[in-house]
Design a protein around this nucleic acid. Sequence first.
DNA 1: AAAATTTGCGTTACATTATAACCTAGCATT
DNA 2: AATGCTAGGTTATAATGTAACGCAAATTTT
Lengths: 157, 157
Amino acid sequence: MASSVFLPHNHQHCVQDALRQADTYCEEQGVRLTPLRRRVLELIWEEHKPIGAYDLLARIASEGFNSAPPTVYRTLDFFIQHGLIHKVESLNAYIGCNHEQGSHTSVFFICQNCGVTEELQNPAIEGQLALQAAGMGFQINHPTLEIKGLCKACRHA
Amino acid sequence: MASSVFLPHNHQHCVQDALRQADTYCEEQGVRLTPLRRRVLELIWEEHKPIGAYDLLARIASEGFNSAPPTVYRTLDFFIQHGLIHKVESLNAYIGCNHEQGSHTSVFFICQNCGVTEELQNPAIEGQLALQAAGMGFQINHPTLEIKGLCKACRHA
DNA sequence: AAAATTTGCGTTACATTATAACCTAGCATT
DNA sequence: AATGCTAGGTTATAATGTAACGCAAATTTT
Ligand SMILES: [Zn+2]
Ligand SMILES: [Zn+2]
Ligand SMILES: [Zn+2]
Ligand SMILES: [Zn+2]
């Protein structure tokens, strides 16, 4: 398990896996992965970097889809509802999720130099958060954990 | 140390402490806590809830200050630079900081029902984050840790 | 004190991000 | 075919945030 989006890898696999997972998921859930949705998801997965709604919009508009904001925001909402993408709050941008569906707690490591962003699950961090919350009587619903810094490669460059 | 912003408390103390700390800090640093800045900080501390830039702007405008966005954004920038407030990214809103100055890592617990938000420092959480980052060769510069959920009081109501 | 520099902020204009509300066409169920 | 549901087209607007210019007061230098 040395795989990381910060390391070189055959990225076609990432995209194809993501799309296949989405196909399967939508089939199972009885929801439709329409051409627009499929293309938006593909664009989101084009790089391991969060992409802004209006960047996406420009891309799909240039491909003949409708170019008004609701088009892309509706699509983003759909994927967020179904756990196929996340919003990176500190960037107002969106990134694909390849973790097991259903709500889960992730930490995003965001390189401020190259933009590459890795989503990780870490039970130890979750555990400490849960501990802190329990002590306060606080019920955790939705953690936003986003770490900006420098990835290994950018640090050494 | 049972004090928490989620519990009833004499809030005048919070506001006065914050303003006095800011006075002292600005004095020490040789920067100016102008009437506009002082009032903005006071408004931010009015409640233990993040406040939006345009809400602030409306407040100060109604008090005779200039009503154009740069007025408030410059002031917010000033306080963020000096560590006297934080931006809550997941709300696009701003909240006062009463912790020791200088950059520090905080976790924000945000009640989705009442809006009250508590900033905490927790070395165990920081430690686990540092551990994860170290394993990746990632250099942490700026964590954003914001937990939405229900405070004790709202959970029991 | 006069001159030079920095700082705070007034002002205008604009950029970016996101949503509300209404409508229509296609698909799905009966 | 009739009905309801879903996806998305369309228009308009809301909410959040910046760039750029200028001036006047405060601070520093001469
Ligand atoms: Zn990849
Ligand atoms: Zn990098
Ligand atoms: Zn208080
Ligand atoms: Zn509450």
